[in-house]
């Protein structure tokens, strides 16, 4: 292998020595289609990933709705068992009947209606309380940023975060270890 020409000649000879036997081999049948096909594309890959995410999203949303309803009912009735919730209503109706029978008056409707209304208000209050807790958390999160801009320092974010996490009403710099200036109260007034 002296010059470039020699090298190229040798290269060609060697390539033919190696590749000619391969080129002489019989040609196999051509593979007809990509393995998997349409079903694989639908079941696998990005489609499956997105489908799984959507399903998970629905499952989480459904679970959250059921859990929130159950939590409200537990808060009102004080029991985890749904049978107890129904039983409480039955007992209430029975109490209405007994009261009316004793007083000799007729018409159970207004009594049951009043109790149902009371129950509804309790449930509604419970919902609002939990919403208020969530909202106060969000609002205070926004407020922290403003306060910080007005020169209150990083103490605001720490203090307000603690207060909201515990479900307390924000109260100036009370739970805020890092700020005792007016910036903190301005934040909550705003």
């Amino acid at each position: 292998m002296n010059g470039p020409g020699d090298f190229e000649r040798e290269l060609e000879q060697e390539l033919h020595r190696i590749l000619d036997p391969i080129a002489a081999a019989p040609i196999p049948l051509r593979r007809a289609r990509l393995s998997g096909g349409i079903m694989k594309r639908l079941v696998g890959g990005a489609g499956a990933a997105i489908g799984l995410k959507v399903l998970t999203g629905f499952a989480v949303a459904a679970f959250a709705a059921v859990a929130a309803g159950a939590a409200t009912e537990v808060a009102v009735t004080g029991s985890l068992n749904p049978a107890d919730w129904g039983q409480q209503v039955t007992q209430t109706v029975q109490t209405c009947k007994d009261t009316l029978r004793a007083s000799g008056t007729r018409g159970i409707g207004p009594c049951v209606s009043a109790i149902a209304k009371q129950h509804g208000e309790q449930v509604s209050d419970s919902h609002q309380a939990s919403k208020a807790r969530e909202n106060s958390g969000k609002d205070n999160g926004k407020g922290d940023g403003k306060g910080h801009d007005k020169g209150n320092g990083s103490g605001n974010s720490i203090g307000n975060g603690n207060g909201n996490g515990n479900g307390h009403k924000p109260s100036g710099s009370g739970s805020n270890p890092g700020s005792s200036q007016s910036g903190s109260s301005m934040l909550f007034v705003a």
């Binding site: 190696i18 391969i22 080129a23 040609i27």
Partner: peptide, 22 residues
Amino acid sequence: ERLYRNSYRRILGTLVTMLRDR
């Protein structure tokens, strides 16, 4: 199909030099 028959061996020959084995 004709292109496959005409060029299969040459394509294989090229790829043999690029990949691990036949």
